[in-house]
Write a protein that binds this DNA or RNA. Structure first.
Lengths: 216, 216
DNA sequence: GTCTATACATGGATAGAC
DNA sequence: GTCTATCCATGTATAGAC
């Protein structure tokens, strides 16, 4: 669009950061041009000058925030080589998210997308960044199990991402409940990890049984 | 409180229904005393007269709506006897939710609870109704598998409920993605169902292996 | 090009009419 | 007891100052 002077970029960045802070701390219901501008320390009308509308600012903030968040965890996810490790990393991310709230932010935008049509594609895009990372991990991890050929990493990655968003939102109203949910999933991970470690003979038997009964 | 005249109850009910309609159709961001009252066909100020504040109305609507929704599915959940059946019922519920949106409504309230403190307990309570139902099913279903003794139905029920809320919200911005997520989970259900049908000898072997490696 | 002052719309809440 | 008219706060958007 414009040549993007330093001053303009500075203000835009302040607004993006302000939008993220407001969304995570106040939620979509309390996010407005005024509240965001207050968090950013700039005049309220600059939202409209630089982004056209509140929705477009939020859409931009979504992309901006999701990229940052995913980049933050990318290395750790790339190091995962088993399902139980994936669960452990998920748990660690959850702990950080308690403070950062980047995932719950997607929940806020998902909720807002209901009315603010412009948020739909942006939020889907932000979630997609997570999905892509998770899918890569799942492809790697599932190939090592007897279940690899019966699972769909692309679909599962979507399920995992959406589920994680749900759990992060849930954590906001019942921290104990969310903790027990993650505990249970971790336990489930240990279970599957144990199956991963079945001897080669048993693995072949399971695989054979699955091929007969679990035809997709 | 008051003797609850017929007229008062009528207005309250209209407001509760109006709140549910507004939350599902417009989302938490567009839900206000005015929009709810418009949907209910009553004067805006009646929200405050009958419920004290918008938040208290939403909290009441949450209880009201969650009870209705859970009652609607209770019989079907009670009939579930296996994991794959549970997944199938979950899928069927999702299809109905596309129209009804009772679960996505919990997502909206979860998002709103961030700021509107009064919504937190109410939403947690609404979710709890779902969790209780799911937990009962899981207790029943898991006992029949070789994994029963290594899983925590209470925690898993929370994980399942939160995940389902996340997927319903996700469906709002990417229907195809949500469908593939559910497909993948269904496929996973078939997989586990196949393991359920391992012969008794193999089941004992798996169980034995788990006892050694998956000590909780 | 960047931002402020200002106009107009919507939302929350209550004093007082019926 | 039930509800309406009305007030003030908050939100969106733009016309015009710098």
């Amino acid at each position: 669009m414009s040549p993007e002077t330093a001053k303009s970029l500075e203000t835009k960045n302040r607004l993006l950061e302000g939008a993220l802070r407001t969304l995570t701390e106040q939620g979509i219901a309390k996010t407005s041009a005024r509240t965001v501008a207050a968090a950013a320390g700039v005049n309220q009308a600059l939202v409209f000058y630089h982004f056209g509308s509140v929705d477009e600012l939020l859409a931009a903030a979504c992309r901006y925030g999701a990229e940052q968040a995913v980049a933050r965890y990318r290395a750790r996810l790339a190091a995962v080589t088993s399902l139980s490790e994936l669960l452990a990393v998920g748990r660690a991310i959850h702990e950080e998210e308690r403070a950062g709230g980047h995932v719950a932010l997607l929940g806020q935008l998902l909720a807002g997308a209901q009315t603010h049509a412009a948020l739909g594609p942006a939020t889907a895009g932000g979630l997609q960044l997570w999905i892509d990372e998770i899918e890569q991990v799942l492809v790697r991890v599932l190939a090592a199990t007897p279940f690899g050929e019966f699972t769909d990493p692309a679909g599962l990655a979507r399920a995992v991402a959406a589920a994680f968003v749900g759990i992060e939102l849930y954590e906001g109203v019942d921290a104990t409940g969310a903790a027990s949910a993650l505990d249970a999933l971790e336990q489930l991970g240990v279970l599957v990890a144990a199956l991963e470690e079945l001897g080669p003979v048993a693995q072949r038997a399971v695989r054979h049984h699955l091929r007969r009964t679990a035809r997709r």
